[in-house]
Amino acid sequence: MELLHSGKVRDVYADGEDLILVASDRMSVFDVVLPTPIPDKGAILTQLSLWWFDQLADLVPNHVISEDVPAEWAGRAIRCRRLKMVPVECVARGYLTGSGLRDYEATGVVSGIELPAGLVESSQLAEPIFTPSTKAAMGAHDEPMTFAEVITTVGAATAEQLRDITLAIYRRGSEIAAERGILIADTKIELGWDADSQLVLGDEVLTPDSSRFWSAEDYVPGKVQDSFDKQPLRDWAVGLGWDKTAPGPEVPAEIVERTRARYVAAYERLTGRTWS
């Protein structure tokens, strides 16, 4: 097999007409891949994505062919269809936090959408919004796009499809997660065209790497929420005084285990399955 691409987390191999998408245990902060892996992370991301692909199958087709992959990647890789990826990051937000909050505080606007005055950190929005961004090269940062800019990039009909699919996935995911005590603050999905020019869901979906998961029980607007993701790792990295450039620092065992526990908790609460 030929290695086509190696990203911060995933490696993509060509196997004839198929692709093999391998999720590694690599972890990054501030767009820098750290030297210390998080055990089971790749398998959790893959298995949780597969579970979500099933929950969303009636909304949008996905790229999964099977889990028939080489033995050394079993559990953390999928065989999938080749897609021509859309040159837009498709993001939905139901709560105001992160870069969306920063843009709102500066201008009152997020991706061209004017929001009401008086919103605070973690405020729930009246309706989920589509807040697309550019697809930056590895190591660079995505920049917000307005819907008009998406239309310029892909055309009006495709732009409407991207928005509608993204919001439908967010709403379905939020409903399912809420039944399990989890709020999905926001999520990013990847869409691409298949050989028949149909939009297809690819990469990963509704994982701790592509979404912010918050505990519904502990949710209090006006403050940063505790999340089911690499937050322990980010907090540790911030406290180092590190200049956020490569090479990154080695991660202590305690932080590795706390981070792994967040991924396991997200998987178990959402799927109802026990991670072994």
Rank of each mutant, 00 (worst) to 15 (best):
K230M: 06
K188P: 14
P208A: 08
P221A: 15
I184N: 10
S227E: 09
I189K: 02
D235N: 14
A185C: 11
G181C: 12
V220C: 04
S227F: 09
V205S: 00
P221F: 03
K188I: 08
P221Y: 07
S197A: 14
D203A: 01
K230E: 02
K230A: 09
D203K: 03
F213S: 09
I182Y: 05
L199M: 05
L201A: 06
W214I: 15
R212L: 02
Q231S: 10
S227K: 12
L201K: 02
L201N: 03
A185V: 14
F213W: 10
T187Y: 12
K188L: 09
E204R: 07
D196T: 14
V220P: 05
Q231P: 13
D186S: 08
T187H: 13
L233M: 08
S197T: 10
R180N: 07
A195I: 03
L191F: 01
L233A: 07
A216Y: 06
W214C: 08
L201T: 02
W214K: 12
R234A: 12
S210H: 02
V224T: 15
D229R: 13
L233I: 08
W236Y: 15
F228R: 00
D196N: 15
L201V: 00
D229P: 14
G202R: 02
T187Q: 10
V220R: 03
L233E: 09
G192A: 09
E204V: 05
T187C: 07
L201H: 04
L199P: 00
T207C: 08
I182L: 15
K230H: 11
L199F: 05
D229N: 15
D226Q: 13
G202W: 06
A195F: 00
G222M: 12
R212G: 07
K188Y: 12
G222C: 08
T207A: 02
R234T: 12
F228Q: 05
R234C: 07
L206V: 00
S227W: 06
L201C: 02
D186R: 10
D209G: 04
L233V: 11
Y219C: 03
T187S: 12
T207V: 03
S215F: 00
G222P: 13
A216N: 06
V200F: 00
K188F: 12
G192I: 01
A216W: 03
W236K: 14
G222I: 12
S197K: 13
E204W: 05
